[in-house]
Design a protein around this nucleic acid. Structure first.
Lengths: 263, 263
DNA sequence: ACGGGACTCTCCCCCAGGGGGAGGGGGCAG
DNA sequence: CTGCCCCCTCCCCCTGGGGGAGAGTCCCGT
């Protein structure tokens, strides 16, 4: 049996950290002296400690580490681990996108943005709606688009989306994905929605959605500079989507902000 | 001029976060109403906000973000940014190493460790010593090894290291890198050191140093199982180093733990 | 049997980088 | 004038630790 200090030396985990893992139920000492509170570890706990160490290096939250450690079944453990590796992959993608976007932002001569005013009439579409966390948007978008495409026979134009502003302010909000079609069906999550007419300031965003906020910002500057004001949820139109071109740099999204004139 | 809520919508930064950035001096509103405390932002601050957003996505600390934002010179700004990108690269390397090591740890049939007891006589070597943070170890090791190799003409064996145990417990400790040579010189940081004789439990670690702690743990288990105890700093011997083979999976390090018999 | 030093215990405060919510003032339209 | 929405500050919460105080324990040597 090993005292906490020896166990610390053997695992390269600090004494503080070992105590915290005990408290969290992650790595419970093989024995705790009732009288003194002294923790005793068994040498057989060293491999577990090292798995925890590796998972923490990968920024796996302690709660998830516990799930992995406690899963006795090798299969479910492997599944949990590969879940997290997939999460790391996704994070890496986001990091790459942020680097690309940062370079563009620091580019000394930026591409000027073209903004167009457009009056959009009332239209009835097939839509799917939900309240979504912004970090779950990617998955929701893919699923909803697939369901819409399966439910709609005749498409009369590109798909679009309507995004509540609180989504961007608070990370969660009402979103709607829609496809224009005659006589929209009502099947599964798909149902008809009538979009009200609006006047939009429209700019086209080229590239992956990760840096759409840059176009949002430029659009916002333009709106402010032209003495207009924003009212209501953002409308997006997907001109080129992953379905049509797998290369993210080819994607084209129209971003339309409902405006009214500040008289 | 924009109220904080509008600015939030335009930049996709939450109101809370904007206030925090104001407090941190990162993004100071163009005007603050003396009487009410209301913050007003100018549309020209949107690009700055987006650069900050990107840098935070890359986990750049707020203090460093401030340095980047405040550097008016485009050259020094680019240098600061690429510093952080290099840091991200290094972190990515560590993540990759952790993934590899994790897979090995979860491997159902692990490679058994061979441990050898070895009596090491007193020896006088050319050495460089320092107190080092464990996250600065890599850089320190490379620099010290280069200086040692330049200072020593005749090498009588592979280089070695002596590592204080507190380095692993507290993340900082005394370390020594040494090369056996006749008549050790005294030049720059290099000076002669006489290493006392010890009895070592020795195991060979194959692969990059990132998962050396796994071998440490196995060695520790063996030492405990054989009713021995550890005393004194760890000794390492570098049999195959990056100098000899650039492939990390070919590196070989002997890890030796000074022991004494618990009679 | 008794020091003394090394070890361990709990408890509290600190950090970054935010989020949640309370409680109170400001501004504008109906 | 009265809602209602916006904004303010202030405080506590989260994760995953680190630092240090003050007190109790263990064990070795004498």
């Amino acid at each position: 049996m090993l005292a906490i200090g020896e166990f610390s030396r053997l695992t390269h985990l600090s004494v503080k950290t070992l105590r915290r893992y005990h408290e969290a139920g992650l790595l419970v000492p093989a024995a705790v002296d009732r009288a003194t509170g002294y923790r005793s570890y068994d040498a057989s706990q060293i491999p577990t400690a090292q798995v925890i160490h590796r998972l923490r290096e990968l920024d796996v939250p302690l709660a998830d580490v516990r799930r992995i450690i406690e899963s006795t079944d090798a299969g479910s453990r492997a599944a949990l681990v590969s879940d997290h590796l997939a999460r790391l992959e996704a994070e890496l993608d986001r990091t790459r996108a942020a680097v690309v976007s940062l370079r563009r932002l620091l580019d000394p001569d930026p591409v000027p943005l073209r903004v167009e005013l457009r009056a959009v009439p009332e239209v009835t579409v097939a839509a799917i709606e939900a309240d979504v966390d912004s970090d779950a948007m990617g998955a929701w978008y893919a699923g909803a688009l697939a369901e819409l495409e399966a439910a709609v026979d005749v498409r009369m134009g590109p798909a679009g989306g309507v995004y509540d502003n609180v989504l961007f302010e608070e990370g969660r909000g009402h979103v709607m994905l829609h496809v224009p079609t005659p006589d929209p069906p009502r099947r599964g999550r798909v149902h008809p929605v009538t979009l009200p007419p609006v006047e939009l300031a429209v700019a086209t965003h080229v590239g992956p959605h990760d840096d759409a906020d840059v176009t949002y910002g430029e659009l916002g500057s333009w709106v402010v500079a032209n003495a207009l004001a924003v009212s209501g949820p953002v409308r997006e139109t997907y001109l080129v989507t992953p379905t049509e071109d797998p290369d993210p740099s080819a994607w084209r999204t129209e971003i339309g902000w409902p405006i009214f004139r500040m008289s």
